[in-house]
Each structure stands twice: as structure tokens, then as C-alpha cells.
Nucleic acid binder design. Structure first.
Length: 270
DNA sequence: CCCTGAACCTGACCGC
DNA sequence: TGCGGTCAGGTTCAGG
């Protein structure tokens, strides 16, 4: 489910409820996520949330004693609920706060993660080697062009690689390439500098627009307060196989790249 | 280092 | 209604 805009939407949604709030209780109904939830996470109890940050698709809940790292995987969502409200299937964790609110992690497929680190979270193994934030100045055409030289992978898989740039998942990779007029099949190493200029701009534009719209709700993404996102109304190619291209009218195609579906317009994208 | 494909897991949907 | 196959918004890891 969640790419960067959905995670950022979630971050913004939970922050007002938990910033400076003290964790009173941790309820772990299912510890088996991508990795087991560590017992040390209980050290979070009694701590105040000092900041609610995001790095790539990871949420960082910082306290004085350590930081919770939270990833939503493919099917995860976080909602703010009343602490005593009834949980449903796949509601694996509640982090309960002194204000009687809780953030509740639901993740049917359990590809998400919830970890605890007492060290600098940015130096954590999973975070350390991540590429730049797509909306930062560090993510620019010079950088991406240099990284791409000599690489034979498709441009689509290249921009989805979190070590190159974080946060660009399957939907927004497809959409950014469409807006850039670049074929998803082209080798990353053969894309010109000029086209990387465009691509970087389009990635930034698509992600920023999606954040403004509260993310994309395909089936079950919800914001922290339970509302869906609205960016799906602006999708040009994702999920539109056999539909007409909104720009040129030709038929949108679907192929598989790196075990993921890619949607594109063979006329607009070269 | 680079690339590819398996693995992790559940649920929805489709065709028979 | 049931059954099997396919697909799904992510990422790590093993092997070549």
C-alpha cells in the first residue's frame, strides 16, 4: 500500500496526537511481522514522543531513550484511535498514550516492521544506506545521472531502488515515467542527462501532488483519521491497462519488470 | 558490485 | 458455493 506520500500523510496525521505524549502501554497482539517485534520495544513505555519523523518509507518515533522504527510494508496502515476502542482482525499493535489515544497498526500481510533502536536511528542498518529524499535538493539530475552510468537495469527498477532514491514505489514510478515520456524498459545507463532532468522534476511533482491529495487509496489505504487519499483520481497509467491513454488515446500496456507490474503508454513513452 | 528471482503473508477476485 | 490460480501499494536476501 504505502509509498512515500502515504507514509508522509500518515506521519502528518498521527503527529498532533502523539507529539510530546507519554507512552503508557504497548499492546502487541501479533509480534510476527517482517521481523519479530523485539522485546526491547517495551522500553518505549513511559517515554515521551519527542519527534515524529520520516526517512524514506520508515516512520521514526523518537524518545529520549530510543527510537521506534516503523515500516508499513505492502498492506500496513496506522490509525489514531481511542485507546479503549475495539480492535479488529490484523490490528497487530497498539501504542497507547497518556491522552487515552492509541496509534493502531493494522497490517494483514505482515510485511511491515516495528523495531527499536537506542542508537542514532539514521545509522540503523535499514536506514543507513538509503538514497536521498526525493523532495530534497540532494536528489537532482546530476546525482541520478552519475548513479545510473553503467547500470543495465531498467529505468523503472532503477528509480524504485531505495538505495538510489527513497520513496518511489510502483505507482509513482509508473506515473513519473509517464509524465517524463520515458519508456520504463529503457536501461538506466542509457538515459540521457537531459531526460534525467525531466525525470527528477516529474518525480518531485508527482510525489508532492500525491502528498497534497493525502496519498493514493487503491483499496484500503486510510489516513490516520480513517479518511482515504484522493490521488488515485489523477493516475494516468497505473491500473489502467487496456484503457485509452489520456494524452494520445492509444492503449495503455501492462508488463512485468522485476516481479512488479508496470503500466505505460507505448506512444507517449519512448 | 550488479543483477535476478525467491521469500515473507493474507485476502480479494476471477473463471470454472 | 467451492476451489484453484492470479494478483496486490515493499524490501531483504541468496546465488550467479
Amino acid at each position: 500500500m504505502p509509498e512515500l506520500p502515504e507514509v508522509e500523510t500518515t506521519r502528518k496525521g498521527i503527529k498532533p496526537y502523539i507529539q510530546d505524549q507519554r507512552v503508557t502501554k504497548l499492546i502487541i497482539r501479533q509480534p510476527k511481522l517482517r521481523w519479530p517485534i523485539p522485546l526491547s520495544l517495551h522500553d518505549m513505555q513511559g517515554q515521551k514522543i519527542r519527534s515524529v519523523k520520516r526517512r524514506g518509507k520508515y516512520l521514526l518515533l523518537e524518545t529520549d531513550q530510543g527510537t521506534a522504527l516503523l515500516h508499513l510494508g505492502m498492506s500496513g496502515s496506522l490509525r489514531v484511535v481511542d485507546a479503549d476502542s475495539a480492535h479488529e482482525k490484523h490490528d497487530h499493535v497498539d501504542i497507547v498514550f497518556a491522552n487515552n489515544k492509541a496509534i493502531r497498526l493494522r497490517d494483514p500481510r505482515r510485511f511491515g516492521a516495528l523495531l527499536w533502536t537506542v542508537d542514532d536511528p539514521l545509522q540503523h542498518k535499514l536506514i543507513r544506506s538509503l538514497g536521498p529524499e526525493p523532495l530534497s535538493d540532494a536528489f537532482n539530475a546530476d546525482y541520478l545521472f552519475k548513479q545510473s552510468r553503467g547500470r543495465t537495469v531498467s529505468i523503472k527498477q532503477f528509480i524504485m531502488n531505495g538505495h538510489m532514491v527513497v520513496g518511489v514505489g510502483n505507482i509513482y514510478a509508473c506515473e513519473s515515467l509517464f509524465k517524463s515520456g520515458i519508456s520504463p524498459k529503457r536501461s538506466a545507463g542509457k538515459v540521457s542527462k537531459k531526460r534525467y532532468e525531466t525525470l527528477v522534476l516529474m518525480i518531485k511533482e508527482v510525489l508532492a501532488d500525491a502528498i497534497e491529495q493525502g496519498g493514493t487509496t487503491l483499496k484500503d489505504f486510510v489516513q490516520a483519521e480513517g479518511k482515504p487519499g484522493y490521488f488515485q483520481q489523477q493516475l494516468n497509467v497505473y491500473g489502467r491497462m487496456d484503457d485509452d491513454c489520456l494524452v494520445c488515446g492509444s492503449t495503455i500496456k501492462k508488463i512485468t519488470q522485476g516481479q512488479r507490474s508496470t503500466f505505460y503508454c507505448g506512444t507517449c513513452q519512448r
